[in-house]
Amino acid sequence: MVMKRSLLALSLFVTVPAAALAQDARPVTVFAAASLKNALDEIMSAWNAKGGAKATASYAASSALAKQIENGAPADIFFSADLEWMDYAQQRTLIKADSRVTLLGNRLVLVAEKGRQAPVTIDPALDLKGLLRGNRLAMGEINSVPAGKYGKAALTSLGLWASVENSVAGAESVRAALTLVARGETPLGIVYQTDAAAEPKVEIVGTFPENSHPRILYPVALTTQSQASAEAFFAYLKSKDAQPAYTKQGFSILASGQGS
């Protein structure tokens, strides 16, 4: 085993030495929330250039990924966009609980197609229904997609949910909701700050108060079926070398792991 578990426990963010790059060539498969795509694509590109075990990723809503792992999909690492779906996986012994860390944070924002909507203040006085002008509000599916659940929680907390709940266009992932706005199919959407940064056709017109919804946290863990070759890349995901890819997309780096 290239990276000893004791090394992983020393610090959440460490520089991975060259010796840690596995000579084990078996591919490593990461099941990751759709909102992580840009950051992880960059991280995997850098990792694969180092010549270790090749890393690949499958992106979707955290709910869909957890269910796929439960149904036997061959994932080595699960990177979720909320605690609930990682809890789901842990309760079913789908992950190695001692490897689990809460690595990143995010913000919830309101986006519009670029140049179509002036900035707004998101508070109880916001006429969100009026801003929609009879159209739909794009957001993740509210019962399963983490961004959709956060969005509903925020709108409910602000007293805005009742006015727009019949106008919601529920999407299968946060990136799918973002696409609806980018294509002009909906005038507004609720997505993560990092998604807005990844799509040049949209712009942030408002940021939800952090106290209006549960904290947006991203836990990551090895799955119980993970290969030994996955441990070096798992360490790299948490390393100082990976941090710039996260921060460039707008994620906040959490200084220490947080258990469930």
Results as ranks from 00 to 15, higher is better:
Ala46Met: 13
Gln117Gly: 01
Val168Ser: 04
Ala22Gly: 13
Phe234Thr: 00
Ala53Arg: 09
Leu126Tyr: 05
Phe233Glu: 04
Phe251Met: 08
Gln91Cys: 09
Tyr246Leu: 04
Arg26Trp: 04
Thr247Asp: 12
Ile95His: 07
Thr207Arg: 00
Ala19Arg: 03
Arg183Ile: 10
Pro146Ser: 01
Ser144Phe: 12
Val145Cys: 10
Pro119Phe: 09
Lys240Cys: 03
Lys149His: 05
Lys240Leu: 13
Lys37Tyr: 00
His213Asp: 00
Ile142Asn: 14
Ser157Val: 01
Glu141Leu: 04
Phe208Gly: 05
His213Val: 09
Glu113Ala: 12
Gln90Lys: 12
Ala73Lys: 07
Arg215Val: 03
Gly52Lys: 09
Trp47Asn: 10
Lys248Thr: 05
Leu222Pro: 11
Ala182Tyr: 10
Lys37Met: 06
Ala20Gly: 10
Phe78Asp: 04
Gln117Arg: 12
Leu21Asn: 04
Pro74Lys: 13
Ile43Tyr: 00
Ser252Trp: 14
Ala228Gln: 14
Thr223Ile: 01
Leu254Ala: 06
Gly151Thr: 04
Ile190Phe: 07
Val16Gly: 00
Ala242His: 09
Gln23His: 13
Tyr150Ala: 12
Ala171His: 12
Asp76Trp: 12
Gly159Thr: 05
Arg183Trp: 14
Arg116Ser: 11
Leu65Ser: 02
Leu40Lys: 08
Ser63Gly: 01
Asp123Ala: 13
Thr93His: 15
Leu36Thr: 07
Ile204Arg: 01
Arg92Pro: 01
Ile142Lys: 05
Leu158Tyr: 06
Val109Glu: 12
Ser58His: 05
Leu180Glu: 10
Ile190Glu: 04
Val202Thr: 11
Arg92Leu: 03
Leu21Lys: 05
Glu172Gly: 09
Val164Tyr: 15
Ser239Ile: 02
Ser252Gln: 14
Ile77Cys: 00
Ile204Asp: 11
Gly189Ala: 02
Lys238Ser: 10
